[in-house]
Design a binder for these strands. Structure first.
Length: 424
RNA sequence: GGAUGGAUGGCUGAGUGGUCUAAAGCAACAGUCUUGAAAACUGUCGCCUGGGUAACUGGGCCGUGAGUUCGAAUCUCACUCCAUCCGCCA
């Protein structure tokens, strides 16, 4: 959500921002409604002032006739007041509906464009592997090594269901330990394992609702399953006032992630690229309300993820997402995409974005600045490691005989094992 | 599922229809004292919002929403959340 005062003062900026994101939003309609809201509010406040004033005087009037007359006048005033309040309520409903759909303004450095085809490559790391044989995809590799069971996954869990088995489990846990240790070594990251069942309020606050309802699983109690630990981590700080000494607040959160993939029925139907349920480490940062701080930490959390990929020696590139590929609240976003040999292309493994105070205004997360003024903190998040890098490791590290080398940095978490090969 | 209690500013917490314009304490900020710091003392100090260059000033906010009343933190109703106990499950 943006500040209505800011919207009024910068309506062209807001309008152009929406256009850049290819979101249809009529700023003038909002301002028109806001004019009406202000006009009503002034009328109501004047009547309330009179009511407060007279009510206080009534106490001291001893003359019964005079007192009676004053009360009668106040009854009349009250009727008018109630009528205007009713009117205001109607206006407010429309006002709120528009307010939650105002898109945040994309940064000037965000490329123009409609969808992910227009994203701009900003960094490339590593050599794309050249195989002296035809590389297999992760499904074949994993099934041959008894690391994956999709048939039983479908039997038990349904479409996109899967079981990870054997060395896949060991490799996956090695990855989690590696990530956890990497962030622990930085010293200034707090770690949490956070809930995935989260109340509606928090989804509203983080901007996943009201838009995006069909992408979420819902419980019969009206709660939702979150697709990222970002939601619960932000919710942790909801309605709280942070001490400026605790900023920046850096949190590495782990949780299961659930995604309905409602709009992606035909996409990536095989294997582990697109699944309904996976685990993920997420970085969340809350910082002081300055654009420069947001940019600084955006680069930092992006770099953190790159460090992980580099340590794992996975070829990747980074794209700056274009306007049309940004969410409602995002100011700027980088996607990190790792090389997937079987598709001969880069596939997304993580996404780093910052929001200014778009989320924290809704969630009411504040701090007191140097001057003692209450301000909304800025929020950012980035994937640290999702479920996908496991797939990239398996495909990039495959050898001609179908065995898979284990990345150097993971070997110590697997008892010194260097390769995954067929058990005799 | 049943029973009981609760929700007040950054925090703790008083407040049962009209000086509540929300006590008090803590924290914070400024000052005095001090070589410096602490302590002590003095003063300032809730949040949101309208108007005004400013001094200042209007309105709202005591979990949320309705209601009673000339007037509600306070009375009534509904809801949400939290805590404790019992039951159920593990």
């Amino acid at each position: 959500m943006l500040d209505i005062k800011f919207i009024r003062e910068n309506k062209d900026l807001v309008s152009e921002g929406a256009k850049k994101k290819h979101i249809d939003f009529d700023v003038n309609a909002l301002i028109e409604i806001d004019d009406k809201r202000r006009e009503l509010l002034t009328m109501i406040e004047n009547k309330r002032a009179e009511q407060n004033d007279v009510s206080q005087k009534i106490v001291n009037v001893s003359e019964p006739e005079e007192k009676k007359k004053m009360i009668e006048n106040m009854q009349l005033l009250k009727t008018e007041l109630q009528k205007e309040e009713e009117e205001l309520k109607t206006v407010m409903l429309e006002w709120q509906k528009l307010m939650v759909s105002v898109p945040n303004i994309p940064d000037i450095s965000v490329p123009e464009g409609l969808d992910d085809k227009d994203n701009r490559e900003v960094k490339v790391f590593g050599e794309i592997p050249k195989f002296s044989f035809t590389p297999k995809n992760h499904i074949e590799l994993m099934q041959n090594l008894d690391m994956l069971d999709l048939e039983r996954g479908a039997k038990v869990s349904g479409f996109r269901g899967y079981f990870l088995k054997g060395d896949a489990v060991r490799l996956q846990f090695a990855l989690w330990q590696f990530v956890q240790e990497h962030f622990f070594q930085k010293g200034d990251w707090k770690q949490m394992i956070v809930p995935s069942v989260v109340r509606r309020e928090v989804f509203m606050g983080t901007g996943y609702l009201p838009q995006g309802e069909e992408d979420l699983y819902k419980t019969q109690d009206g709660d939702y399953l979150s697709g990222t630990a970002e939601v619960a981590t932000m919710g942790y700080f909801m309605d709280e006032v942070l001490d400026i000494k605790d900023l920046p607040m850096k949190v590495l959160s782990f949780s299961p992630a659930y995604r309905r993939e409602a709009g992606a029925h035909g996409k990536d139907t095989k294997g582990l690229i697109r699944v309904h349920e996976f685990y993920k480490f997420e970085q969340v940062v809350l910082c002081e309300a300055s654009h420069a701080e947001s940019v600084k930490f955006h680069e930092e959390i992006q770099r953190n993820t790159e460090e992980l990929m580099e340590a794992l020696k996975l070829p990747y590139h980074v794209v700056a997402n274009c306007g049309g590929d940004l969410g409602l609240g995002q100011v700027k976003k980088y996607d990190i995409e790792a090389w997937l040999p079987s598709e001969n292309t880069y596939r997304e493994t993580g996404s780093a974005s910052y929001f200014h105070d778009f989320q924290t205004r809704r969630l009411n997360i504040r701090y007191r600045d140097e001057e003692g003024k209450m301000r909304f903190v800025h929020s950012l998040n980035n994937t640290a490691l999702s479920g996908r890098p496991l797939i990239m490791i398996i495909e990039n590290y495959q050898q001609e005989d179908g065995s898979i080398k284990i990345p150097d940095v993971l070997q110590k978490y697997m008892g010194g094992q260097t390769v995954i090969s067929k058990k005799s």
